[in-house]
Simulated scan of single mutants.
Amino acid sequence: MRFALGLFLIFLGFFVVLGYFSLGSLPNFIDNFSATWPLILVFIGISLLSGIKGLKWLKYVNALLILGYLFFLLLWPAPINFAYQSGAQDLLTKETLSENTVVELNIDSSICTVNIERLEGTIAGNSVGNVVYEISTGSEFYIHERDHDDTIQYNIGTEHSWPQRGKNRLNIKLLPGVLYRIILKGGVLKGGLDLSGIMVDSMTINAGVMDFDISLSDVYPISLKTEGGVGKFNVFLPQNAKAQVEINSGIKKITVRGYKETTGSAGEKIIGSISAKLKSFLEFDAGVLWLSFSD
Rank of each mutant, 00 (worst) to 15 (best):
Y84K: 09
K94P: 06
Y84C: 01
G157V: 03
N126I: 10
T122W: 03
I111S: 01
R146G: 10
R165W: 05
I152V: 15
Y154H: 05
N130R: 15
P163K: 10
H148N: 14
N126F: 12
S109A: 15
D147T: 13
R169G: 02
G129P: 05
L97K: 09
T122L: 09
T122N: 13
E145W: 02
G87K: 02
E117N: 10
G157K: 04
S139E: 07
I135V: 11
C112M: 06
L170A: 01
V102N: 01
P79L: 10
L74Q: 00
S98Q: 11
I143F: 03
E120G: 11
G138F: 07
Q89V: 11
H148I: 14
T101R: 05
G121Y: 09
I152D: 00
E120L: 14
T137W: 04
A78T: 10
L74G: 00
N106Q: 12
E145H: 07
L97V: 09
V128M: 06
Y84T: 05
G166F: 03
T137F: 07
I123M: 05
P163E: 04
P79N: 08
E104I: 02
W76Y: 15
G166L: 11
S161E: 09
L74H: 08
C112H: 02
A124Q: 13
N168K: 04
E117I: 01
S139H: 02
T151F: 08
V131G: 00
R165P: 00
A83C: 00
E120K: 15
T137M: 10
R165Y: 06
R146L: 14
R146K: 15
G87N: 04
V132A: 11
N126D: 15
N106D: 12
G138H: 08
H160G: 07
T101Q: 06
Y154D: 02
D149G: 04
Q153R: 13
S136Y: 00
S86V: 00
G166K: 09
A88T: 12
W162M: 15
V131S: 01
S161L: 14
L119D: 05
P79Y: 05
T96R: 12
G125F: 09
A88W: 02
L170K: 06
A124T: 13
A124C: 03
L97D: 03
R146V: 11
S127E: 05
E140R: 13
E159Q: 12
T101N: 10
L92S: 02
V131H: 02
A78N: 12
T122D: 13
I80P: 07
V102F: 09
E140H: 12
V114G: 02
N130C: 00
V131T: 01
E95K: 14
G138I: 11
H148P: 01
H144Q: 11
